[in-house]
Amino acid sequence: MKKYLPFLIVLAVGLLTLGGGTLLYRAKLRATAAAAKNSKAAEADKAKALHVRGEAKAPVTLEEFGDFQCPPCGTLAGALKQLEKDYGDRLRVIFYEFPLRVHEHAREAAFAAEAAGLQNHFWEMHDLLYQEQANWSKGTDVRGMFKAYAGTLGLEVDRFLRDMESAEVKARVASEQKLGTSRGVESTPTVFINSERVPVPSLNPAGLRAMIDKALQEKPAP
Protein backbone atom coordinates (compact mmCIF):
# COMPACT_ATOMS: atom_id res chain seq x y z
CA MET A 1 0.00 0.00 0.00
CA LYS A 2 2.85 2.38 0.90
CA LYS A 3 4.21 1.96 -2.61
CA TYR A 4 1.08 3.52 -4.06
CA LEU A 5 0.61 6.18 -1.37
CA PRO A 6 2.58 8.99 -3.10
CA PHE A 7 0.64 8.37 -6.32
CA LEU A 8 -2.64 8.50 -4.41
CA ILE A 9 -1.66 11.72 -2.62
CA VAL A 10 -0.61 13.44 -5.85
CA LEU A 11 -3.74 12.25 -7.63
CA ALA A 12 -5.98 13.40 -4.78
CA VAL A 13 -4.36 16.84 -4.66
CA GLY A 14 -4.59 17.14 -8.45
CA LEU A 15 -8.29 16.25 -8.42
CA LEU A 16 -9.00 18.52 -5.45
CA THR A 17 -7.26 21.44 -7.17
CA LEU A 18 -9.15 20.85 -10.39
CA GLY A 19 -12.48 20.38 -8.60
CA GLY A 20 -11.96 23.30 -6.23
CA GLY A 21 -10.83 25.55 -9.06
CA THR A 22 -13.86 24.64 -11.14
CA LEU A 23 -16.25 25.27 -8.23
CA LEU A 24 -14.63 28.62 -7.50
CA TYR A 25 -14.76 29.55 -11.19
CA ARG A 26 -18.48 28.75 -11.35
CA ALA A 27 -19.17 30.66 -8.14
CA LYS A 28 -17.30 33.70 -9.45
CA LEU A 29 -19.19 33.58 -12.74
CA ARG A 30 -22.50 33.42 -10.85
CA ALA A 31 -21.40 36.35 -8.67
CA THR A 32 -20.46 38.42 -11.73
CA ALA A 33 -23.78 37.61 -13.39
CA ALA A 34 -25.64 38.48 -10.20
CA ALA A 35 -23.72 41.75 -9.88
CA ALA A 36 -24.63 42.62 -13.46
CA LYS A 37 -28.26 41.73 -12.77
CA ASN A 38 -28.39 43.71 -9.54
CA SER A 39 -26.71 46.62 -11.23
CA LYS A 40 -29.38 46.59 -13.92
CA ALA A 41 -32.20 46.22 -11.41
CA ALA A 42 -30.89 49.11 -9.36
CA GLU A 43 -31.03 51.37 -12.34
CA ALA A 44 -34.74 51.70 -12.73
CA ASP A 45 -34.59 54.01 -15.67
CA LYS A 46 -33.19 52.17 -18.63
CA ALA A 47 -32.22 55.36 -20.37
CA LYS A 48 -30.18 56.28 -17.32
CA ALA A 49 -28.43 52.92 -17.49
CA LEU A 50 -27.26 53.59 -21.02
CA HIS A 51 -24.77 56.28 -21.89
CA VAL A 52 -26.98 58.38 -24.12
CA ARG A 53 -26.38 61.83 -25.51
CA GLY A 54 -29.23 63.54 -27.34
CA GLU A 55 -33.02 63.51 -27.36
CA ALA A 56 -34.70 60.32 -26.18
CA LYS A 57 -37.26 60.61 -29.01
CA ALA A 58 -34.72 61.34 -31.74
CA PRO A 59 -35.61 59.48 -34.97
CA VAL A 60 -32.02 58.33 -35.46
CA THR A 61 -30.06 56.38 -32.90
CA LEU A 62 -26.34 55.92 -33.45
CA GLU A 63 -24.77 53.26 -31.26
CA GLU A 64 -21.01 53.03 -30.93
CA PHE A 65 -19.02 50.17 -29.44
CA GLY A 66 -15.75 51.89 -28.59
CA ASP A 67 -12.38 51.48 -26.98
CA PHE A 68 -10.80 54.57 -25.42
CA GLN A 69 -7.31 53.56 -26.49
CA CYS A 70 -8.21 52.86 -30.11
CA PRO A 71 -6.96 55.74 -32.33
CA PRO A 72 -9.78 55.45 -34.94
CA CYS A 73 -12.30 55.69 -32.06
CA GLY A 74 -10.61 58.91 -31.00
CA THR A 75 -10.92 60.28 -34.53
CA LEU A 76 -14.54 59.17 -34.72
CA ALA A 77 -15.33 60.88 -31.40
CA GLY A 78 -14.54 64.27 -32.92
CA ALA A 79 -16.64 63.53 -36.02
CA LEU A 80 -19.58 62.36 -33.90
CA LYS A 81 -19.56 65.55 -31.86
CA GLN A 82 -19.87 67.58 -35.04
CA LEU A 83 -22.71 65.34 -36.28
CA GLU A 84 -24.54 65.72 -32.95
CA LYS A 85 -24.26 69.48 -33.33
CA ASP A 86 -25.44 69.41 -36.95
CA TYR A 87 -28.39 67.06 -36.49
CA GLY A 88 -29.50 68.43 -33.11
CA ASP A 89 -32.54 66.68 -31.66
CA ARG A 90 -32.83 64.35 -34.66
CA LEU A 91 -29.85 62.28 -33.51
CA ARG A 92 -29.01 60.53 -30.29
CA VAL A 93 -25.76 58.73 -29.59
CA ILE A 94 -25.30 55.71 -27.33
CA PHE A 95 -21.85 54.59 -26.26
CA TYR A 96 -20.99 51.03 -25.21
CA GLU A 97 -17.70 49.93 -23.73
CA PHE A 98 -15.74 47.48 -25.83
CA PRO A 99 -12.11 47.61 -24.59
CA LEU A 100 -9.88 45.44 -26.74
CA ARG A 101 -7.27 43.19 -25.18
CA VAL A 102 -4.58 44.43 -27.55
CA HIS A 103 -4.75 47.84 -25.92
CA GLU A 104 -2.81 47.82 -22.69
CA HIS A 105 -4.80 50.47 -20.83
CA ALA A 106 -8.18 50.23 -22.57
CA ARG A 107 -9.84 48.27 -19.80
CA GLU A 108 -8.71 50.68 -17.11
CA ALA A 109 -9.86 53.60 -19.25
CA ALA A 110 -13.28 51.97 -19.56
CA PHE A 111 -13.39 51.56 -15.77
CA ALA A 112 -12.41 55.23 -15.40
CA ALA A 113 -15.24 56.35 -17.69
CA GLU A 114 -17.74 54.14 -15.87
CA ALA A 115 -16.52 55.34 -12.47
CA ALA A 116 -17.01 58.92 -13.66
CA GLY A 117 -20.45 57.85 -14.89
CA LEU A 118 -21.39 56.87 -11.33
CA GLN A 119 -20.90 60.53 -10.48
CA ASN A 120 -22.92 61.55 -13.56
CA HIS A 121 -19.86 62.64 -15.54
CA PHE A 122 -19.53 59.78 -18.01
CA TRP A 123 -19.57 61.93 -21.15
CA GLU A 124 -17.17 64.48 -19.73
CA MET A 125 -14.69 61.69 -18.96
CA HIS A 126 -15.45 60.08 -22.36
CA ASP A 127 -14.54 63.29 -24.16
CA LEU A 128 -11.48 63.90 -22.00
CA LEU A 129 -10.15 60.38 -22.49
CA TYR A 130 -10.38 60.70 -26.26
CA GLN A 131 -9.00 64.22 -26.21
CA GLU A 132 -6.00 63.11 -24.13
CA GLN A 133 -5.70 59.67 -25.73
CA ALA A 134 -2.23 60.31 -27.17
CA ASN A 135 -0.91 61.24 -23.72
CA TRP A 136 -2.26 58.57 -21.40
CA SER A 137 -1.95 55.75 -23.95
CA LYS A 138 1.82 56.05 -23.76
CA GLY A 139 1.95 56.79 -20.05
CA THR A 140 3.28 54.39 -17.46
CA ASP A 141 1.09 55.70 -14.66
CA VAL A 142 -2.29 55.76 -16.39
CA ARG A 143 -4.09 55.37 -13.12
CA GLY A 144 -2.43 58.52 -11.84
CA MET A 145 -3.46 60.31 -15.02
CA PHE A 146 -7.08 59.14 -14.75
CA LYS A 147 -7.05 60.31 -11.14
CA ALA A 148 -5.87 63.71 -12.34
CA TYR A 149 -8.62 63.78 -14.99
CA ALA A 150 -11.19 62.97 -12.29
CA GLY A 151 -9.86 65.90 -10.30
CA THR A 152 -10.05 68.16 -13.35
CA LEU A 153 -13.70 67.19 -13.83
CA GLY A 154 -14.43 68.00 -10.21
CA LEU A 155 -15.22 64.43 -9.20
CA GLU A 156 -14.82 63.01 -5.70
CA VAL A 157 -11.43 61.46 -6.39
CA ASP A 158 -11.41 58.88 -3.58
CA ARG A 159 -14.83 57.62 -4.58
CA PHE A 160 -13.75 57.60 -8.24
CA LEU A 161 -10.73 55.39 -7.43
CA ARG A 162 -12.89 53.05 -5.34
CA ASP A 163 -15.51 52.86 -8.07
CA MET A 164 -12.87 52.03 -10.69
CA GLU A 165 -12.26 48.81 -8.79
CA SER A 166 -15.85 48.09 -7.92
CA ALA A 167 -17.70 44.99 -9.03
CA GLU A 168 -20.48 47.21 -10.37
CA VAL A 169 -18.17 48.99 -12.82
CA LYS A 170 -16.45 45.79 -13.91
CA ALA A 171 -19.80 44.06 -14.38
CA ARG A 172 -21.05 46.92 -16.50
CA VAL A 173 -18.01 46.85 -18.80
CA ALA A 174 -18.26 43.06 -19.03
CA SER A 175 -21.98 43.17 -19.83
CA GLU A 176 -21.51 45.79 -22.56
CA GLN A 177 -18.71 43.72 -24.07
CA LYS A 178 -20.99 40.70 -23.96
CA LEU A 179 -23.71 42.70 -25.66
CA GLY A 180 -21.26 43.77 -28.37
CA THR A 181 -20.09 40.22 -28.94
CA SER A 182 -23.70 39.04 -29.22
CA ARG A 183 -24.19 41.70 -31.92
CA GLY A 184 -21.14 40.54 -33.85
CA VAL A 185 -18.75 43.27 -32.72
CA GLU A 186 -15.13 42.21 -33.12
CA SER A 187 -13.27 45.47 -33.61
CA THR A 188 -13.61 49.11 -32.69
CA PRO A 189 -15.17 51.41 -33.53
CA THR A 190 -18.27 49.48 -34.56
CA VAL A 191 -21.26 51.68 -35.24
CA PHE A 192 -24.93 50.91 -35.72
CA ILE A 193 -27.41 53.46 -37.05
CA ASN A 194 -30.98 52.52 -36.20
CA SER A 195 -29.68 49.00 -35.61
CA GLU A 196 -28.08 48.79 -39.06
CA ARG A 197 -24.35 48.16 -38.94
CA VAL A 198 -22.24 50.85 -40.59
CA PRO A 199 -19.67 49.27 -42.93
CA VAL A 200 -16.05 50.10 -42.10
CA PRO A 201 -15.45 52.19 -45.30
CA SER A 202 -18.35 54.45 -44.23
CA LEU A 203 -16.84 55.18 -40.81
CA ASN A 204 -16.03 58.77 -41.73
CA PRO A 205 -18.04 62.02 -41.47
CA ALA A 206 -19.38 61.81 -45.05
CA GLY A 207 -20.27 58.13 -44.81
CA LEU A 208 -22.02 58.56 -41.46
CA ARG A 209 -23.89 61.62 -42.71
CA ALA A 210 -25.15 59.64 -45.70
CA MET A 211 -26.39 56.83 -43.48
CA ILE A 212 -28.04 59.22 -41.00
CA ASP A 213 -29.79 61.03 -43.87
CA LYS A 214 -30.99 57.70 -45.23
CA ALA A 215 -32.30 56.74 -41.78
CA LEU A 216 -34.05 60.11 -41.48
CA GLN A 217 -35.77 59.59 -44.81
CA GLU A 218 -37.01 56.20 -43.68
CA LYS A 219 -38.07 57.48 -40.28
CA PRO A 220 -38.66 61.23 -40.31
CA ALA A 221 -38.86 63.22 -37.11
CA PRO A 222 -42.28 63.04 -35.37
Binding site: G20, G21, K28, T32
Partner: peptide, 23 residues
Protein backbone atom coordinates in the same frame (compact mmCIF):
# COMPACT_ATOMS: atom_id res chain seq x y z
CA UNK B 1 -5.37 28.55 -8.28
CA UNK B 2 -7.30 31.47 -6.77
CA UNK B 3 -5.43 33.99 -8.96
CA UNK B 4 -5.98 31.84 -12.06
CA UNK B 5 -9.73 31.71 -11.41
CA UNK B 6 -9.79 35.51 -11.00
CA UNK B 7 -7.90 35.93 -14.26
CA UNK B 8 -10.26 33.59 -16.10
CA UNK B 9 -13.38 35.33 -14.81
CA UNK B 10 -11.95 38.77 -15.62
CA UNK B 11 -11.80 39.84 -12.01
CA UNK B 12 -8.85 41.32 -10.18
CA UNK B 13 -8.33 40.80 -6.47
CA UNK B 14 -9.03 43.76 -4.23
CA UNK B 15 -6.25 43.16 -1.67
CA UNK B 16 -8.30 44.58 1.19
CA UNK B 17 -8.63 48.11 -0.11
CA UNK B 18 -5.13 48.40 -1.60
CA UNK B 19 -4.98 49.10 -5.34
CA UNK B 20 -1.85 46.99 -5.89
CA UNK B 21 -3.63 43.82 -6.99
CA UNK B 22 -5.81 45.77 -9.40
CA UNK B 23 -2.77 47.31 -11.04
Amino acid sequence: TYLTVLALTGETATCGGSTGCFE
